[in-house]
């Protein structure tokens, strides 16, 4: 139909047009594409952050950022409230993102006073490789994206069951304890009345002599009986059961080996808020379990 030269001209024209049209199409949609990619990469950062959080953070801050008494404060909504408080009370001038990033990367050199009445066994360690931690800078950024996502999403609705906490009241009568359920509480197989798992085993081992943060509880029943007869004992307990109860509800009443187990003079490493999580039944069951550790 056409000679070779004409066919070549037609072919070249079509191909050039196709290329130009393609570039034009890319041009027109480039803004949306970049926005889409940005959202996608942020989503991937959040996903990676979630995996890292599960691996490194959830043992102290809880799987859903609800905190673990004695180990780490709640992040959702704690970290956001804490940041607002810092801004208002101490003229803290950094951004929320940087506040979180710096806290993760460089850790907390001193123990936080993050929540009133809470004392944490150890300060936040450094996490960034820049400060001797295990995580790369991009992993820190992913974690920050994950934590910030709580705020953009709003605090997750966690229904809190209504219950009467034992608190620090030592006079409240306890029902008879079930050592089986106490053991299940210890092993975090059943939850406390507050809906959170009991965090005892995070700091106390059941192996004789093993010190995680607090002393090993192996043989605690026998030891409790000795403690109340010790000359320096200043508490009110008359029986081993009462001693254990006092230690849980009012850990500052008597601190064994303060050099080792006190966070500050007169303040035990053991948090004083554990009773807020427990019903009288929880406490009785735990005591019954601990009394089996002769």
């Amino acid at each position: 139909m056409f000679d070779l030269a004409t066919r070549r001209i037609i072919g070249a024209t079509i191909l050039t047009l196709a290329t130009v049209i393609t570039i034009g199409m890319v041009w027109l949609t480039e803004e949306q594409r970049m926005a889409r990619f940005e959202a996608m990469h942020k989503a991937k950062a959040i996903e990676n952050g979630a995996l890292l959080y599960e691996q490194y953070c959830s043992t102290c801050h809880g799987p859903n950022g609800e905190g673990v008494p004695g180990k780490g404060p709640d992040l959702n909504p704690g970290v956001f409230q804490h940041y607002e408080a810092l801004k208002q009370n101490q003229n803290y001038a950094n951004s929320l993102r940087n506040f979180i990033k710096l806290t993760i990367a460089a850790g907390r050199p001193i123990r936080s006073t993050y929540r009133a009445n809470e004392v944490y066994a150890d300060p936040m360690p450094t996490w960034s490789q820049d400060f001797g931690g295990p995580l790369r800078p991009d992993q820190i950024d992913s974690l920050v994206e994950f934590i910030l996502n709580w705020q953009t999403a709003g605090p997750a609705p966690t229904p809190t069951p209504a219950f009467e906490a034992v608190g620090t009241d030592l006079t409240k009568p306890l029902p008879p304890g079930d050592p089986k359920r106490g053991e299940a509480l210890w092993n975090q197989e059943v939850k406390q009345a507050s809906g959170a798992a009991a965090s005892c085993k995070a700091c106390h081992s059941l192996k004789p002599g093993e010190v995680l943060v607090g002393p090993s509880l192996a043989g605690i029943a026998t030891r409790a009986a000795e403690r109340i007869r010790a000359p320096d004992y200043r508490g009110q307990a008359k029986t081993p059961e009462e001693y254990i109860r006092e230690s849980i509800q009012q850990p500052n009443a008597y601190i064994v080996e303060p050099d080792k187990y006190a966070a500050a003079p007169g303040v035990s490493k053991m948090p004083a808020t554990l009773g807020n999580q427990m019903s009288a039944q929880d406490l009785a069951d735990l005591i019954a379990f601990l009394m089996t550790l002769k």
Partner: peptide, 21 residues
């Protein structure tokens, strides 16, 4: 020269369209 230019055009079209879609 025209033939080579045509190959160049075809190659660029292949790469641009291939990469875009």
């Amino acid at each position: 020269a025209i033939q080579e230019a045509l190959w160049g055009i075809a190659l660029i079209a292949f790469l641009v369209i291939g990469a875009a879609f």
